[in-house]
Write a protein that binds this DNA or RNA. Structure first.
Lengths: 215, 215
DNA sequence: GTCTATAATGTGATAGAC
DNA sequence: GTCTATCACATTATAGAC
């Protein structure tokens, strides 16, 4: 199921290691980024939450941008694992079901953080020039929405206007974006009080309806 | 169709008026908030884009927070108009269709801004303590997802676990959040290049499928 | 690994002239 | 309505001691 036309990722997130002191920074940072956005989070806030000084943080990471990247990398390891499991599935439909379920699980488990990941323009800009994260995002999109992996597979941007007169004026980027919207909806503040199990089930059902998958 | 249990909004956004100089600020601010988030946008940036100094802006608005609120109010007038039209519809299904179509139109027309409105935690916090905006949001949610306006209508939080054994273990906050996720998906950076008309049609189709409305 | 101290710059906000 | 000039404070980041 792994597309042979796509290069293997150069770095597995799971193989990057962080010292305990670094992990403490990344844990504090995730919460604060989720609550205030990247731009709204100062190193002072992170230091305060950890009970240390700013200088202690600068000993672990050279810049704020490095903290943003490391935060995303570190907390996305389960996401990478989910993608790898899905890519190992037997057929495309099964891969899609597996990944979808795991994406939703991940999103529900990290409700607050999910808003930061997808909503914050600063975060987005930083992550999109960071290859490991770009790669992971692409693999997810490919698994979820590329209807005909045979014809596509190479470059998602090149698919666009090929069969235009047909039923498929469809650009697969649209269902992809919508699906992301559905999954990340679990991070909306209004759903904070809802039981995780119910949230998981309901969102999965709606997502299946959207993708025309049997639920 | 207007729910008699809900008080009329104290202020119509359309009735708030702004001087030309103020509108210039609000126009520049919208773009910048969309690109950088509220916290990532400085008054210096707004001033630079307008070609004036910070002091000129402080002559129009007393604080940055006032600018955020006014930006949302000013650019949400079409949204308010859409809600008013939908509330005037004959039945609930028709109201829902009308509002949905107009929400999507609005979102597509203001693609960049939509991310800011829904994604930014700072923006969200400021707007949610601003009554006119809270009220507008509530009216939209009520129109879109309250299945049985008779039994509900008063407090959305109290609906939860009433008829649990049935098909409707449903909390209406979940489809509401998902629908918001779908509509605001049009603001995702990956869709920036897509033709507005196609985007409108496709998103409407998916949203209808989600709501079980005929498209 | 953490601290104090400090540099250099940017921040929201104000006073008063034109 | 916009300007110059300024305030008090917060910001990212560094140097060097413990």
């Amino acid at each position: 199921m792994r597309p042979t036309t796509t290069a293997r990722p150069a770095v597995r997130l799971a193989e990057i290691s962080y010292s305990p002191a670094q992990v403490r920074v990344l844990t504090a940072a995730l919460d604060l980024f989720a609550d205030n956005g990247v731009a709204g989070t100062t190193l002072q806030m992170i230091a305060d939450r950890m009970g240390v000084t700013k200088a202690a943080i600068y000993h672990q990471f050279r810049t704020k941008e490095e903290i943003v990247i490391a935060t995303a990398d570190y907390h996305s390891v389960p996401l990478e694992a989910a993608v790898e499991r899905a890519e190992a599935a037997q057929d495309r439909v099964e891969a899609r079901r597996v990944l979808l379920q795991q994406l939703i699980d991940f999103a529900v488990r990290n409700r607050a953080g999910v808003s930061a990941w997808r909503g914050d323009p600063v975060m987005t800009r930083i992550l999109m020039k960071h290859e490991p994260f770009r790669g992971l995002t692409e693999r997810i999109y490919t698994l979820l929405v590329n209807e005909d992996a045979g014809a596509v597979g190479v470059d998602a941007g090149a698919v666009r206007a090929d069969r235009l007169g047909e039923e498929r004026e469809n650009d697969s980027r649209i269902p992809a974006a919508i699906l992301v919207g559905v999954i990340t909806a679990v991070g909306q503040p209004g759903l904070a009080a809802i039981d995780p199990q119910i949230l998981r089930e309901q969102v999965f059902r709606y997502a299946c309806r959207l993708l025309n998958l049997p639920d």
